[in-house]
Every structure is written in structure tokens, then in C-alpha cells.
Design a protein around this nucleic acid. Structure first.
Lengths: 217, 217
DNA sequence: CTATCTCGTGAAGTTAACTTCACAGAAATT
DNA sequence: AATTTCTGTGAAGTTAACTTCACGAGATAG
């Protein structure tokens, strides 16, 4: 289960506490704030993954609050609570960057559905920006490195000069450059006697590339 | 079936013609040459995918021939025919760049097995160096572009400024740069009313990225 | 009708990726 | 023992990728 924090901002104490309670009942970790200003302070100490904020509040309203948060933490999902469910309110909330909205009055289930939907979206997006994704894909995007992987996949184990000759590359230091890159990305390893071989991860990536090659051309 | 050309180089006319015949019986397109020198000329007109060359020949032998071919056409597979099946011969043939060897005398099936095995290896290697592979992987290796893909995958269709705000990028021209890249790689398209959406190919790539994200961490 | 927002181009400027070159110690050969 | 081959390092140099800036035409809103 996700144990990330959800922030609830509403000046109406009754509503705020009831939202907090509903969420806590569903095993979310929740922080309640009475004003947007207080929330901005609080975020500095603990960054929530989702914020539920009322549009109409004394002081800073949800609309003003939104860009401030999104600017510093674009990944945080924000659900706006709008007073009346006019189309205008909803549209303007979404246009100014809200990820979702709840029209007052809303039911317990509507709240939970919205929260869970947005957490799913967050999870989806985070998968594609996983650390290591960049490096791995960039590493695989080079034809020489893929050729090295292919060669190692077929022969199992190769020495440095064997690889260089096998690729027909004139400058051996170029091969060395790419081997270092492959090692840094944990696709290739070097054993006791200096021989290069695929790591388990490297072997998986070779499989992955073959599957991918079906889709390409 | 593969209809690529195989080249057979042997000064012994009987052996050469019998190899050619065996291969032609198996629906390969074959060119026979009596000398390595003649073969080098011939290659300029038609590049074979595999060469079977005798080690011992008057004039240029297989050992001298090998580096000349591999230098200009590193992808061509070369099977060396060695006179005696001593370990030395085999090892030195492989060390100088031969992909496989056949010890005289060899049987019809030994020849066919070796040829087919090497064509399989060739196919394997070619899959990983398919054109378009580079560009696609490089395109996917950028986090902003993956975020755009994720957003389009979730929302189905987005306008330019919606994407820009959704990513929390201050400079819209940066987003434009990456969108152009995605369009150039056929992952994203733009319809009549300027709205961006995933192409079929782009949607598949999003799926593949999710598969990959399982493999990564 | 003026002002703002949208969506885009193109030219620098910057950073990262890749290549090439010069050199060198360790290992294997002769 | 001398020499070649193997396996590297590190410093330029080059090219490609990305970012930023300046500008503008067309739509939309006030």
C-alpha cells in the first residue's frame, strides 16, 4: 500500500476534519491545514504527493495557491474543491493546472475515487521517469554498444581485442569508451581474467531489444 | 526464406562445385570463385552475406583474405575451410577473425549446419542494429519526452500549452523542441485542430516503457 | 480594437556524447 | 632480452543534443 502523504487545505474545520478522517480510515497519511499560507510552510518540511485544496478561502484561495505549488513541485497532484459545480468553475480550475476537482457537496466515495484515480496517474507517470531509465535507454541507443551486447550474448565471454576485431573498429580506444559506458550502466561486467561478459541485467536488455525490434521497422 | 548470396572460394574445382551444388539445392543463391583475388573483385559487384573460403590455396590464402574482407565489410560472416582438423588451425583461424571453420573432409550436413548457424547469428546481430532503433531509443531516453508521452497516454489528446503547463516547464519553446522530436520519430501526431496525440506506434512504446520500468530498478 | 494568449520559427549559446590522438604499463611472443 | 600484442588512461577535438533568447503571426478575450 502507498503510505505517502496527502495534504488537505480547507478553512471549514468540519469539512476538513471529515475529509482527513475519511482518508485516514483508508490508511492514508494525512496532514490538514487551515490556510493556504500555512500549507506552503508545511510543504517545506514534508512534501505530499497529493493536495486537496478548497477554492474559496479567506486569504489565499486555491486558484492562487495552485501555481505556487505547481511551480516548485510540478509532480504533486492537486484536487480542487469548487463551491458550485458549474462548468465554468471546473474548466477554469483545470485550466489553471488542477489535476482534478470535486464539486461541493461531494460524497465520501466521490472523494476516495478521485484520490485513488490521481494516485494511479501519479504512479503511472513515475514509472516512466524512474531513475536509471534515462541512462539505460541512452546507453542502448548507441549502435556500437548494441553490437557489443549482441556479440557478448552470442559468444558468452570475450576479451577486449576480440570485441574490437569482431566489430571491425579500427580504433580500439573507441571500443574501450563504449565498454566503460556499458559497465557503468551495469549491462556488462569484467571478470578476474579481464574477459567481458553480459550481466544478468544486460542479458535482459538484449531480450528486450529483440522484442522491441519487432515493433520498430 | 533468405535469398541472400553466399560466396564459395576454393581452387579445387571438384570441391567448390560440390559445395555450390549443395547450397543451391537448399535454395541459397551462390557465387563460386577459384581464387581469393577474383573473389575480392566480385565482392564489389555483389556483397555476399557469407563467405566460405579455403585456407590453403595458391596465391592468396584464406588467412590473408580474411582481414581484407572483414576490414571493408565487417558484417560478412566468413567460414574457413582448414586442411587438417588440428586444434591449432581452428584456433588460429578464429583468432584472425573467422566466424566459423570446417575441417576437411566434411560432410554435406556439417556444411549446411555451419552455414545455417552463421546465418542465424547474422540475423540476430542485424535485429539489434535495425535502422530506426537508434533514433527511437535516443528519443525515448529523454525524460521530458517520456513525460509528454505519459501525459498524452493518460489524457488522450492535449493542446500545446496544456502540455507545457502540465510539465511545469517555464519555457514553452523547449516543449516545442521535444514535440518536434517526438513527431519526427512518429511517436506523436498532430490533428486538424493542432491537438497532439499518441500515434499507434507511440502508444506501443509507452507500453514498452512500462515493461522496461519493471526490469530497471 | 487593443491586449493577451497560443503556437510556432530560427539563431545563438551551452552542455553532453562521441571520436581521435598520444602515450604507457602488463602480458605474451619470439 | 627484445619486441610485439593487449588493455588501458587522459587530454584534446568534433559533433550532436539540448536550452535559451528574440521575435512574430494568428486566435481570443476584454
Amino acid at each position: 500500500m502507498t503510505t505517502e502523504t496527502i495534504m488537505v487545505i480547507d478553512d471549514d474545520q468540519d469539512l476538513r476534519e471529515s475529509i482527513v478522517e475519511i482518508l485516514e480510515d483508508n490508511n492514508f497519511s494525512v496532514i490538514g491545514c487551515e490556510t493556504a499560507e500555512a500549507a506552503l510552510q508545511q510543504i517545506r518540511f514534508e512534501v505530499p504527493c497529493l493536495i486537496i485544496v478548497d477554492n474559496m478561502m479567506p486569504g489565499m484561495g486555491g486558484m492562487a495557491f495552485l501555481p505556487l505549488v505547481k511551480n516548485d513541485y510540478p509532480k504533486i497532484k492537486v484536487i480542487m474543491i469548487t463551491a458550485f459545480s458549474t462548468v465554468d468553475n471546473a474548466v477554469s480550475a483545470m485550466k489553471s493546472g488542477a489535476d482534478d476537482y470535486l464539486a461541493k457537496p461531494f460524497k465520501r466515495d466521490e472523494l476516495l475515487v478521485a484520490v485513488k484515480r490521481n494516485l494511479e496517474v501519479l504512479k503511472f507517470e513515475q514509472q516512466l521517469s524512474k531513475p536509471g531509465m534515462d541512462e539505460t535507454l541512452a546507453c542502448l541507443s548507441n549502435p556500437i554498444r548494441r553490437q557489443i551486447l549482441a556479440a557478448l550474448s552470442l559468444k558468452g565471454e570475450m576479451r577486449f581485442m576480440d570485441i574490437t576485431r569482431h566489430l571491425g573498429v579500427s580504433d580500439h580506444t573507441k571500443v574501450n569508451f563504449h565498454l566503460k559506458n556499458l559497465k557503468a550502466n551495469d549491462l556488462v561486467s569484467q571478470d578476474r581474467e579481464k574477459a567481458y561478459r553480459l550481466t544478468a541485467h544486460g542479458a535482459k536488455m538484449v531480450d528486450y531489444l529483440h522484442v522491441l525490434s519487432q515493433e520498430i521497422s
